[in-house]
Design a protein around this nucleic acid. Sequence first.
DNA 1: TCACGGAATATTTTT
DNA 2: TATTCCGTGA
Length: 649
Amino acid sequence: MHKPNDICRTHAVTGAWGEALNEAQRAAVAHSEGPLLVIAGAGSGKTRTLTHRVARLVAEGVHPATILLLTFTRKASQEMLQRAARLLDRRCERVSGGTFHSFANLKLRQYASKMGLSPDFGILDRTDAEALIAMIRKESDRAPRQRPLPRKNTLADIFSRAANTVRSVDDVVFADYPHLSDQTDAIVEIFHGYARSKREHRFMDYDDLLVWFQRLLQEAPEVRQRISASYRYIMVDEYQDTNRIQADILYHLTDANRNIMVVGDDSQSIYAFRGADFRNIIDFPKLFAGARVIGLEENYRSTQPILNLTNIVIERAREKYSKHLFTRTAGGALPELVATVDESTQSVFVVEQIQNLMACGVRLDQIAVLFRASFHSFDLEIELSRQGIPFVKVGGFKFTESAHIKDVLAHLRVIANPYDRISWYRILQLVEKVGPRSAQSIYESLVAAKAGVSGLFSLKQKGAAMDGLKQLYRAIDSKTMPLVEMGEAVVHYYLPILKRLFDDHPKRARDLEQLLGILERYRRLDRFLTDMALEPPNISAEETLYTAATDDRLVLSTIHSAKGLEWQSVFVIWALDGRFPSLYAMAREADMEEELRLMYVAATRARENLCFTYPRQVWDRSMGILLNRPSRFIDSIPDDILKKRFVGI
DNA sequence: TCACGGAATATTTTT
DNA sequence: TATTCCGTGA
């Protein structure tokens, strides 16, 4: 099925490494100078096209380091370069690239002085950022209020959205959080406090990396010239998920050479809630006049019956590059829409179907269950455990975000920077008898003492906590030790705390061993800490050495985390109007459009079997309404495209 | 001021 | 599921 007739296997572009390309892909691979937009439909060989182009350029003698490949995840860029290396040779691995954030980080440190920044800034991940925001919020919360200030999580969302959409905090609150508009002044004040504190402590959060890099390129022409001249070819993956700052960064990066190729699918833009603007892809030809546009519409993934359905779904979108996916494969089962009596019947039904598929010889890891929100799978998880079906859940928390890893990292961060307020607060409160109050006073006297880590003892009365603080001091007074010993000392100190705090400490202790293993690969603490924030190891919190042994497991995933992946059989559960699209999205048309695209992404993950399920009647407590329709995105589709079924008890 | 336990609650989350 | 919130007792 991967060998349609018109493939030109003898063409010079593909001949060297023999992997077939279709005509559109070949045109994209052969493109050399000037801007190029590739609209790559789901399953149309996007990655193949990118990797072939990298290999082709390198094969023709372009120096790898002058090719810049920007992606959203480190994993994506690694995989692409490895594939290119397999096509050609290891030179492809020397292509410049990585994530927007890691690239910004690199260049910002290099040119920090141009912007009056210190090159040794620390990086705040989302958890750190929230912790700092929480502190600022507490400080500014002296006056009595009729209503509590928004939670730290909400505040971080607001600030991040303001940065990513290049709007003021006022605007964001007014437009996107109208229910908080009576607190706008307080929110803005916290925002300024947060910004001030970051500068004072030389911290950058994820958004700052992009914002400052954009500013550097814009305000320092000589730097812009130097950087842009050093990349002859720029390629960007998942362009539909870039935000305005990223688009602007790219624009500046092409100052010297206009050889930019972006690849994306506007129909799969599902990160607008984080500031991604799918208009970037629509506007690309306006920004880069004379841009060539190539569409990849031949699908190599799904059967025609599945594509018939997904084409209908995406037809319902308002604004898009219209595309119509097709395949040359014949046959295939109709997608199904199954109503069940209630949630537990839905779980039972899905499990039965999975068992049927297994009986037919389908491997478990070729089956996925997708859902809108990560808690939608809770009931199913229980049923799967009951039936002894192994599964992995992807999406949600990352290895480096779990509390125990953050705890250990915080100790190391204090060693790297003894005035790191966020980390001090965190580790001090791990000491017995020390709460928020004591942490604050200890930190304040520590800063005043200006004696580094040993300033820990500058506060006179600490009474009950003294013993714990001494132990803490012993663990982090290790500036001169080799890195690994430093880590070991911290973990050794932390293990008893781990046991006190977590019931599942054995599992978490193994994670810490892994962390030490990673630390061994580094020689500099600051590099290690930066990498942990920007390029965390690719393991989810669950995915330890232990569980990785069995990889034939069912996949449970949020739709967001499933982007770019495919399975033989896909179940989309909770396809209930009000859950998917979620009630939250219904107020805003743009949000509904994104939900629709999300449904499209879900449906296009399936190769052969696609099944939607929903509980027929669900009472929504928060809104006080009865949900009893299938998702509007797949409602009223004729039976010869989508087969309907009801499952009772 | 701190620790602890039970209850409530939950969009999505590449960096 | 797992984090966070809130009340209680020390």
